[in-house]
Structure formats: C-alpha cells, structure tokens
C-alpha cells in the first residue's frame, strides 16, 4: 500500500504565474500563498492528477534534471508536508 496524494475535491486553487514566482489562492483555506518554481511545478502536477511520492519524484527528476536525487526527495518530503498543512493536498491510502 502506498499513499496517494491529490488536491481535495472541495479546494478550488486559482494560480497566477509570473515567471519564477507564482501566487495562488485556495478557496478551501481562503489563504494566498507565494510559490517558488519547484513548489509551482509540484502543484501543477497535482492539478493534472493524483500522485504517489514515487511517481512525483520520478516526474520532477525529469523536469528539473537534478543530480542529487536524495536532496530532491528531502525537499519534496518537506514541501508535501507544507502542502498538506495548507490544505492544498490530502492523502488517501490505496492498494495498487
């Protein structure tokens, strides 16, 4: 079993992207956030569909062409905790 992460059904996220920084509004929390490039890409992937940690890392690895995969994993782990606390994503347990 692996956790599957996705944007909550009742969260409407509006995004305005200005190059290296994006500003987003989440209707669920009513909060506005500033995202850097990495956070923005992660959010865009979730907008496209749900992800497990593994599938997410694989995609980001391709997008950013990073050398240090361990460092990326660490960053994403932290980012996902933040996203979850902000109500931008939620997880469900799923058998696959």
């Amino acid at each position: 079993m692996e956790r599957v992460w996705s944007i909550p059904e009742n969260a409407n996220i509006v995004i305005e992207n200005w190059g290296e920084n994006a500003i987003i509004y989440s209707s669920l929390s009513g909060e506005t956030h500033l995202l850097n490039e990495l956070a923005y890409e992660v959010l865009m992937l979730f907008q496209a569909g749900s992800e497990t940690f593994t599938t997410l890392i694989d995609k980001l690895y391709t997008i950013f062409e990073v050398e240090d995969k361990a460092d990326l994993e660490l960053q994403i782990q932290k980012l996902m905790t933040d996203f979850e606390n902000l109500g931008l994503i939620e997880s469900t347990e799923c058998e696959n």
Partner: peptide, 10 residues
C-alpha cells in the same frame, strides 16, 4: 463560512 469550513476540515 469559509473560515468555518476550513476549521472543520482541520
């Protein structure tokens, strides 16, 4: 209302 929905969610 939105604040309450968010608090209930949390």
């Amino acid at each position: 209302k939105q604040l309450l929905i968010w608090e209930l969610n949390r």
